[in-house]
Write a protein that binds this DNA or RNA. Sequence first.
RNA 1: CGGGGUUUAGCGCAGUUUGGUAGCGCACCUGGUUUGGGACCAGGGGGCCACAGGUUCAAAUCCUGUAACCCCGACCA
Length: 478
Amino acid sequence: MKEQKKFVEDITSMDVDFAKWYTDIVKKADLIDYSGVRGCMVIRPYGYAIWENIQKALNQMFKETGHENVYMPMFIPESLLQKEKDHVEGFAPEVAWVTHGGSEKLQERLCVRPTSETLFCSHYADIIHSYRDLPKLYNQWCSVVRWEKTTRPFLRSVEFLWQEGHTAHANKEDALEETERMLNIYAKFCEDFLAIPVIKGQKTDKEKFAGAERTYTIESMMHDGKALQAGTSHYFGDGFARAFDIQFTDKNNELQYVHQTSWGVSTRLIGAIIMMHGDNNGLVLPPNIAPIQVAVIPVAMNKPGVLEGAKAVADRLGAKFTVKFDDSDKSPGWKFSEYEMKGIPVRVEVGPRDLEQNQAVLARRDNGEKIVVSLDNIEQEVANLLDTIQKDMFENAKKIRENNTYYAKDFEELKDLADNKTGFIKAMWCGDLACEEKIKEDAGLSSRCMPFEQETITDKCVCCGKPAKKMVYWGKAY
RNA sequence: CGGGGUUUAGCGCAGUUUGGUAGCGCACCUGGUUUGGGACCAGGGGGCCACAGGUUCAAAUCCUGUAACCCCGACCA
């Protein structure tokens, strides 16, 4: 961020206390409110509107690739959850249980879904019989519950909103292709809509999803250099199919197990937007996801013609963009700060001087620049500006990531970087769990992913010096 | 789950040391003047001082316990 005048005094500066800055924004931009239940938040209209835009864009991409939306129950009988061993071990520590219905104790307790693999599998076992039934490409939008010990709005809460796709395929190749396809969709969505650059790669066995054979991930880097897993796509092989007995008859009249995938992104993406783009004046939203793209503010609106003139500009822009016209009797300065806090990409000021000269002032949220444009082609000017802002925000985010990405050739370098920098560290790895654990233990870094785009830094593992198998991104994560 | 902190009006806080009428700023309501970076004047409304027990003539204040939230670490979308 360039040196930018700070207009809003009651947001903690991000360089003073990043965590406090984050919670200030989340509250002051009216995204959430805390609720009476520990770790659960009220998502307020403005925050929810961002989520609705995320849903809208992703839903379209899912449907274009043949997926259908469904809804599964929120309760999972204990016996069902128990069916896949790795899966239950991964989730058991953080599930919430329902033990009573009214005053009656239940025969079998029900878990509130932490994720719905087991429900989809049990349903798929019922409805898949023939190769003609495949693939099954289902997705659901819902909330899930994980009894997290420490929580932060959007980044980690006890209940959160997400989408989970669950698909069943006739063979390994189709399933793997689906796993990659969905990861690519997530990556495209993050980059094109959220202006968040991501690194695509595979999780190590230690970090992969409970029950998965492979987990693909998109990893992003926040403003403070810490890593955030923005989305994951899992390949299950036929492990769940065997546990849940999901079989079909193939063309040769032989019984086969299906191969499955699952993939999800959550309201955590909203946290990513905040931490990626926000500044000391508040939220900064990429135009492609902002619930309000343009705020039109009349200045000195009791002067003759001003209110009407400004309203006319707002109406014209409203035909092409989502526009907020604010004719409340707050002072213009108050409105400027308020819409900056809320991250609205473009502000249009219309005052007596402007109307006299057939012009308006456009102010960019991302860098504070103001330009004066003619009213004649203001729609085009605003369209261009929104476009430029979206691109600049992405480029800026990329620069932050580049400036905070390091290389380590040996353990000493790795440790030194871990102690003195926050960011991604690229280093070679032999593939042994022991080394991954040692790096976590001694340097405080977790493996973020083995990127699809591999580089060769050295031929030896950064930890043990044995021959390296993969280049890995390491970092401190949210 | 460890370590620290907080809890008084919608929000942010003072008052607690030394017990004695519940306060300030912002927000809110009414009327008026204003408006190019969080306007001003006047009037007004709003509180079981987190909860439960004690001590006392008297408790926001002292004692005991409980809960919620925040921050920092270990585990996770």
